[in-house]
Simulated assay, not measured.
Amino acid sequence: MSALATLRSLAFMAVIAGGLVTAAWDGARSMSWVHDRDRGDVVWIATGPR
Score class of each variant (00 low, 15 high):
M1F: 06
W33I: 07
A46G: 02
L4I: 06
R8V: 09
A5E: 08
S32Y: 08
G40A: 08
T22N: 09
V34W: 15
D41Q: 11
D38M: 05
A3E: 13
T6C: 03
R50F: 02
R50V: 09
A11L: 15
V21I: 15
W44F: 07
R39P: 05
S32H: 13
V21Y: 15
V42I: 04
S30F: 04
G18E: 00
A46E: 12
V15G: 01
A17G: 06
V43L: 11
W33P: 01
A24D: 10
G27F: 12
G40R: 00
W33Q: 13
A23I: 09
D36G: 04
I16C: 11
R29F: 14
V21W: 13
S2E: 04
G27I: 05
S30N: 14
R8Y: 03
A14H: 04
M13Y: 12
R29A: 14
M31Y: 04
L4Y: 11
G40K: 03
V43W: 01
D36I: 01
D41V: 06
A11N: 13
V15S: 06
R39M: 07
V21L: 15
A28E: 15
W25G: 06
R39E: 09
S2M: 01
R29M: 14
V42N: 02
A46V: 04
L4T: 12
W44G: 01
G19S: 05
I45M: 03
A28G: 03
W25K: 01
G19W: 00
G40M: 03
A28P: 00
T6S: 11
R8M: 10
D41R: 10
R50N: 03
S32P: 04
D36P: 00
A5V: 04
V34Q: 13
D36C: 02
R37Q: 04
T47V: 06
T47W: 02
D36F: 06
D36N: 15
F12H: 04
M13C: 08
L20D: 01
V15W: 08
V21E: 06
G27D: 10
A14Q: 06
A23V: 10
R39N: 11
V15Y: 05
V34E: 10
G48M: 07
A24S: 12
G18N: 07
V42C: 00
H35M: 02
G40W: 08
R8N: 06
S30P: 00
M13K: 11
G19L: 10
P49Y: 08
D38I: 05
G40Y: 01
D26T: 14
